[in-house]
Amino acid sequence: MHRAAPPAALILGAAGLIPFLGLSALVILGQAPFGIAPRPLLAGYGAVIASFLGGLRWGAAAASPEGRGADYAVAVVPSLIAWAALFAPGPWDLRALGALALAWGLIDQDLPRRGLVPAWLGQLRLVLSGVAGLALLAAGFLGTA
């Protein structure tokens, strides 16, 4: 039986896109409200969310009766890539984080297939990772360095 995503997951997931969309727009427009550069804020937020995505896989592995060691190893990859991206010069920081978000949305599709997370989470992840990844890539390609 497929159950629908809980409203809280939908609302909080959508709210989590606001910084991606808002900061990406500021980067693209070359705006720095209140004298705060949006690029490092966007990169930092992207890195934090990438770590959150790794935590999702770690939690799924911990909750699984099989608890495969490979899942734990894969779970740390987004954090490591995101941390390295923070050291990359602009625009490569945002491009790397955007590619990571898009790729990880696809990589994590094995979790619902294996029954480690509900099907709705896999679908929600595709949408959220897609929007976040495209926002980061847009800022990385269209924004000012």
Rank of each mutant, 00 (worst) to 15 (best):
A25V: 11
L26V: 15
V27K: 06
L29V: 10
G30V: 07
G30C: 14
Q31V: 14
A32K: 11
A32R: 09
P33G: 11
P33R: 13
F34W: 14
F34E: 06
F34V: 15
G35S: 03
G35Y: 04
A37G: 06
P38K: 03
L41A: 09
A43C: 12
A43G: 11
A43M: 13
A43W: 02
G44E: 07
G44T: 10
G44W: 02
G44S: 13
Y45S: 07
A47D: 06
A47Y: 07
V48P: 00
V48F: 11
V48I: 15
I49W: 01
A50C: 11
S51V: 15
S51E: 09
S51Q: 15
F52N: 09
F52P: 10
L53C: 05
L56W: 02
L56Y: 01
W58I: 15
W58H: 15
G59Y: 02
G59P: 06
A61I: 09
A62M: 11
A62H: 05
A63H: 04
S64H: 00
S64E: 00
P65R: 02
E66V: 08
G67P: 00
G67T: 08
R68S: 10
G69Q: 09
G69P: 07
G69R: 03
A70E: 09
D71V: 02
D71T: 06
